[in-house]
Nucleic acid binder design. Structure first.
Lengths: 226, 226
DNA sequence: TGCGGCTGTCACCCAATCGTCACAGTGGCG
DNA sequence: CGCCACTGTGACGATTGGGTGACAGCCGCA
């Protein structure tokens, strides 16, 4: 299921730009041009995220935001506000309104996507992460926390599983030891260790012939090859 | 887009040194001599990174750091603190201030660059250079760390890959041996060696007919031609 | 409290890789 | 044509990076 996003702005061009980029990125997009329409659509089919312009005719973004928060159906939908004025930011993020993030106009599509992704990841709605990764005879089942090779399951520790998953999710791309330390170990490391190497060794041992997927790129890091 | 870095220090010489080195490395640099100026500039045009001296007149680095964190526009900008005292380090990195890294004075330009690079890589602001470079049948894939010619992959060492990538990214422009030493080898030394030549040779050997892209410009350096 | 599985670190080792040197080509210029 | 400054080449130790085995601390669990 694609996450649904409702985009609210009265300028057709702005709507179009945002809509195009979000659709491009694989989201389902609805639009509304004013407050009344926004509230109606939001209630009719609760979206996973609302992108809301502050400047709107009649009912402004702040009003809409407050109203959405009052309705049980939409109270917890994350909201990203679009604003032209830096001065509005405090109010936007303040408790009174409780938007989840804001973007100042003008913004780059890239910036928008980054924030959308972040917010959805936080709320857990961005459920398009693959639940299973399969590479030939190697199967990684994320929710079950199981890996198997030719149907025979491989007994991995938590760290090993995380390491394997991370490499597999970024298959093809080399990951430096630093990146791995940050992403698997959540170290903010400026330290030097052989930890990654050791775990790669253990992982390879356990994977047996499946370890052919794990490449060492000398002087750079490791890479999962398909 | 070059990443923007704001350098804050009250000693003009220190600023100049840092500024010079960062510009050399391809960053856009702004400077500020005191806290007020720093805050103003940081808010006016959010930088991708701030290099901040602890010892400043009136408002010290700690103050500035805290203030920056309070403003939504600058709250997430990574900060590298410059400090003379080892004793300050804990405070600098502690939760209260939340600097992202620190360097103790005196420091070498090389050290500074390493940290700057690392921090920017982490925050992802060290922008999206093209992920792939293609010149006819020659393909350079950065994230995969692979080069190929007519679909056949070429096995390059880390240094060779970096050298090729750098030349290719600056295709058409001659790079002097000094520049290459700085950018590929990260030397600051002006030591004269034949190292670059040797690596160019190895690179050419491995590239085979693709080495036609690598030009020698006698008396100057090397150039990648399309 | 004792046990066993995980983890992070270390020391050691080997092969890939690197930097340097001496020497051979080469091109530019008078 | 011949010199000279540069660059290409082949070879060779030195260095480094990563694989490997061992080990001690830690944590959960009985």
């Amino acid at each position: 299921m694609k996450p649904r996003i409702l985009v609210v702005d009265d300028e057709p061009e702005a709507v179009e730009l945002v809509e195009f980029n979000l659709k491009q990125a694989g989201y389902a997009v609805n639009t509304a041009a004013d407050g009344a329409e926004a509230l109606r659509k939001a209630r009719a089919q609760t979206p996973d995220l609302i992108v809301l312009d502050v400047m709107l005719p009649e009912m402004d973004g702040f009003e809409i935001c407050k109203t959405l928060r009052l309705d049980a159906a939409t109270a917890r939908v994350p909201i990203i506000m679009l604003t032209a004025k830096a001065a509005e930011i405090d109010r936007v993020l303040g408790l009174e309104l409780g938007a989840d993030d804001y973007i100042t106009k003008p913004f780059s599509p890239r910036e928008l996507l980054l924030r959308v992704k972040k917010i959805l990841a936080r709320s857990g709605a961005d459920e398009k992460v693959e639940e299973q990764l399969r590479f030939g005879d190697l199967l990684i089942d994320l929710p079950r926390h199981l890996a198997s090779w030719k149907g025979r399951s491989i007994d991995l520790t938590a760290t090993e599983f995380k390491l394997l998953t991370l490499l597999a999710q970024r298959a093809g791309r080399v990951q430096s030891r630093d990146q791995l330390l940050r992403d698997v170990w959540e170290y903010d490391s400026l330290i030097d260790t052989r930890t990654v190497d050791t775990h790669m060794r253990r992982l390879r041992e356990k994977l047996g012939s499946a370890s052919k997927h794990l490449d060492t790129v000398r002087g750079v890091g490791y890479r999962f090859v398909e």
